[in-house]
Amino acid sequence: MIAIIKYNAGNIKSVENAVKRLGYNCIVTDDAEQIKSADKIIFPGVGEASSAMNCLKNTRLDELIKSLKQPVLGICLGQQLMCKYSEEGNTNCLGIFETTVKKFPPMEIVPHMGWNNLGSLKGNLFKGISDNDNFYFVHSYFSEICEDTAATCNYILTFSASLQRENFYATQFHPEKSAAIGQIVLKNFLSL
């Protein structure tokens, strides 16, 4: 069973749809027991960092997520919340990855919205993926490069398109919205 963590973030429907299309059973839940007993956990997110973190704290999902031993995949805001700190709303985040989240500089087109390719691909998530493959991004804040960086992307500057540490995986792009190529990444995660 795949658990998709439910909290006050949008875009959960499309993650659920994508997992189902790959033939996996999944539940969208905020129940600690259901999350703990799942084989894999997806931590999605579209929204604002401080209100999302508040919601996680109020429901004690913050401690739960950090304690998970199964593979966990954070997507978009999910990745950012797994970092140490975010400039968005001046927010202390989960601290799973050793990096901070910053706002793209002003006077450029923000959000970074659309299809972009990756670089410096590392790890199981990117099996079968090349530097020329494009993924769908939409974000105004980015995770800085760090030792956990599993893929980079260039827009205005170079940032972490993906992070990984132990059982924790994350993508800034939306694999569930990245057509066939995104499906490969999701499948790689689900078959870890």
């Binding site: 499309s14 919205k177 990245s178 057509a179």
Partner: peptide
Amino acid sequence: IASEIDIP
């Protein structure tokens, strides 16, 4: 549409 397509 959302259940069938995987682009925004």
